[in-house]
């Protein structure tokens, strides 16, 4: 029972991190039809800048905020300089964002060196407590809380504000939104920045969770995020959190019982979804 509970918690925490990454991907895809292969690079930049800020200032909060700001700025630059010239051309988009991924992760090595950095949780999140004989690690709970907070905040904005309305309408039919006199390009930029900020947040939260950060982890997590986006449905925000939790849980349970097949299990899940429901569990775009 103890093991089961711990694995569930672990899976939920990993799921939340993947969700933060995948949510940005899926929103950007749904709205602008761009699949950002550099998303993992933004994630890694968030991890490095946040961990570095935390180490130099000593404040975890500043680290997190710094990472999010880094994500927002990089997102802005990416959208303006890299994505904007190639809107509408899928092949070019895919190629150019992968090129950006390459440049981002190499730049990371230029700035912080090619070795991995170690990251620890701040004192108030260290350690664990016991509830009814089950040991709960504080930091995992913290990740789950942050993930849920972001989910509900974004969900609230999408459902209850004007900008959210525009985004949801844009996902359905962007020409129509534009015809109604709304500058959708501005909305694109905003969504891209928020998505990048979420990726960076996910990166900085991962640091203390795994203990070390390295430049290659961007790609590793991006692959999981892609799997989540396919399973949840491209463009579906609620789909991304459910699929992320599914992938996180399957990853953590498989890693405990049959560690060699953890990734294979998720791939199998994706293959099944692709065969029977290519638009994803919650999506409608194929």
């Amino acid at each position: 029972m103890d093991v089961f509970f711990n694995l569930t918690l672990n899976g939920l925490a990993t799921g939340m991190l993947i969700f933060l990454l995948a949510a940005g991907l899926t929103l950007i895809f749904g709205l602008m039809d761009v699949l950002n292969f550099a998303h993992g690079g933004l994630f890694a930049w968030g991890a490095y800048s946040g961990t570095w800020l935390y180490a130099t200032t000593g404040s975890f909060i500043i680290g997190i905020l710094g990472a999010v700001v880094t994500g927002l700025i990089l997102g802005l630059i990416t959208e303006r300089v890299i994505i904007k010239p190639v809107y509408g051309n899928h092949v070019q988009q895919i190629l150019i964002t992968l090129g950006l991924m390459l440049v981002l992760s190499e730049l990371l090595k230029v700035v912080w060196g090619p070795n991995q950095l170690s990251a620890t949780a701040p004192d108030f999140l260290k350690g664990s407590f016991e509830v009814g004989g089950v040991i709960i690690i504080k930091y995992r709970l913290f990740i789950i809380a942050v993930g849920l907070l972001v989910f509900f905040a974004v969900q609230y904005v999408l459902k209850n504000t004007k900008i959210g309305l525009v985004v949801r309408a844009g996902v359905m039919n962007k020409e129509m939104v534009q015809a109604l006199g709304i500058n959708i390009k501005k909305v694109f930029m905003l969504v891209f920045m928020v998505g990048s900020g979420m990726a960076a947040l996910s990166g900085v939260l991962l640091g203390p969770y795994s203990g070390v950060i390295h430049a290659e982890m961007g790609m590793e997590f991006a692959i999981l995020a892609f799997i989540v986006v396919v399973i949840g449905g491209m463009g579906s925000f609620p789909g991304s959190i459910l699929a992320a939790i599914l992938v996180g849980l399957s990853g953590s349970f498989m890693a405990y019982y049959v560690p060699d097949l953890a990734l294979a299990a998720n791939m199998l899940l994706m293959a099944i979804v692709l065969i029977f429901r290519p638009q994803g569990l919650f999506g409608w775009k194929g």
Partner: peptide
């Protein structure tokens, strides 16, 4: 499917 899927799936 759309070209994105092949890129993603081959990556995975």
């Amino acid at each position: 499917l759309k070209s994105h899927f092949y890129a993603m799936l081959t990556l995975a």
